[in-house]
């Protein structure tokens, strides 16, 4: 423990040469931070979901959830996002087995599935918009677009992170523990999926 470094946000390449970094809990700083971040994200999405729950019934006669939802379509895109969690976990476990080639493939597949989901959301939004549901149409529309839009942005950021990670792995630009980096992105991605599990039930399946 005498040999100590403070390089947590960029684990050093030479970390192995000097042995384990000192940490009181024996855990990785990055992972602690990521879980804290996810914990705080619960309150962010909780607030948006609550706003939606409060306002879901406040809309004009024919432009409410019951008239607009296309459950089979949304179920399909939910399924896609759920499966991306599987591919993500496969990427993480490949990375832990030091099989970077497979990890990269699974990451790419995850990003593809994520993109499919986002594309579905864009399609859904345009459909709603063409049916007359603008962002400012009603309380329901504002809170619906804000909630799902925030989620969509999270997915998009996740896709960018996945693709960047693939590129950086290929170019050997990832500093530090590669498996841990993959795991960090994985945690974020799973969280985004978990939020959608809530949204799918609370927003789509339970009628207004």
């Amino acid at each position: 423990m005498a040999d100590t470094a403070v390089l947590a946000d960029a684990p050093a390449d030479h970390g192995d040469a000097h042995g384990e970094h000192h940490s009181s809990t024996g855990l990785s700083n990055n992972k602690l931070a990521m879980w804290l971040f996810l914990g705080s994200e619960c309150l962010l999405f909780g607030g948006l979901i609550s706003t939606y729950m409060l306002y879901r019934g406040r809309h004009s006669e024919n432009l409410g959830p019951d008239q607009l939802w296309d459950i089979p379509f949304t179920s399909a895109s939910s399924f896609v996002l759920l499966m991306s969690s599987l591919t993500m976990v496969l990427a993480v476990s490949s990375a832990h087995r030091r099989n970077l080639r497979n990890a990269k493939i699974w990451l790419a597949v995850t990003a593809t599935l994520g993109s499919l989901f986002v594309a579905g959301q864009v399609y859904e939004f345009t459909t709603f918009y063409r049916e007359g549901l603008g962002f400012t149409t009603s309380l329901f529309s504002s809170s619906f677009y804000t909630l799902t839009g925030f989620h969509g942005v999270h997915v998009t950021v996740g896709i960018i992170m996945l693709l960047s990670l693939v590129a950086m792995l290929s170019k050997q630009r990832v500093h530090g523990d590669k498996a841990e980096t993959v795991e960090m992105v994985g945690l974020y991605w799973h969280f985004v999926d978990v939020v959608w599990i809530l949204i799918f039930t609370l927003v789509y399946l339970i009628p207004a």
Partner: peptide, 25 residues
């Protein structure tokens, strides 16, 4: 802070959308 800041963030975002993009919150 970690748990309170997201709550005000939600409130601020709603208000920003209200003022900038005519949302109806």
């Amino acid at each position: 802070l970690v748990f309170a800041i997201p709550v005000i963030t939600v409130a601020l975002v709603l208000l920003m959308f209200q003022r900038q993009f005519d949302a109806t919150f």
